[in-house]
């Protein structure tokens, strides 16, 4: 992979990712995030010299003379591995969050009497409020930023 290919790839991944993140659908958002982190991984990979078919380890310790062209820098590969693991974990967490959110929305809708009072985060006092009228401003952040895809989009 030459430097130019890598640059184009990074640019394409970032552009796709940015476009997808700006969608309102949570799934596209997650896909976009994945794209962007792939883009960064490729960028990290190019931060040292790109050489084809050479391992990032010293093949034979005894004949090694200190010539660094015999192996490629292992550090970017270690960095990419770490970054992949971390972004994998976070994206998995995000997927769980989105699926849980969809479940809750389908179960309760967005009615203010759902046990979702924003100032009552753990539902610790939800039952105290049950006899009272709910304040609209207590629920103003149960909003529709991540709206459900419309019927036409869903198909």
């Amino acid at each position: 992979m030459s430097g130019l290919t890598a640059a184009i790839l990074v640019g394409a991944l970032f552009a796709t990712g940015a476009y997808l993140i700006l969608r309102r659908d949570p799934i596209k958002l997650i896909l976009g995030l994945t794209m962007v982190s792939y883009g960064v991984n490729v960028l990290l990979f190019t931060s040292s010299t790109l050489r084809k078919g050479i391992p990032p380890v010293i093949a034979d310790k005894k004949t090694f003379t200190g010539d660094i062209s015999q192996f490629v820098d292992p550090l970017p590969q270690a960095l990419v591995l770490t970054a992949i693991v971390i972004s994998f974990g976070i994206v998995a967490f995000l997927v769980v969050l989105v699926s849980r959110r969809n479940m809750l929305v389908e179960q309760y809708g967005k009615a203010p009497d759902a046990p979702t009072a924003i100032n009552d985060p753990f539902g610790a006092t939800a039952h105290y409020l049950s006899g009272l009228d709910a304040d609209p401003d207590d629920y103003e952040w149960v909003d529709d930023t991540f709206r459900e895809p419309a019927q036409s989009e869903r198909s």
Partner: peptide, 17 residues
């Protein structure tokens, strides 16, 4: 961690009211 993610993602009651 992966197994707990998988379990969280594969709830049978998901999508049912």
């Amino acid at each position: 961690v992966i197994v707990s993610f998988l379990l969280a993602l594969s709830r049978q009651d998901e999508g049912k009211t």
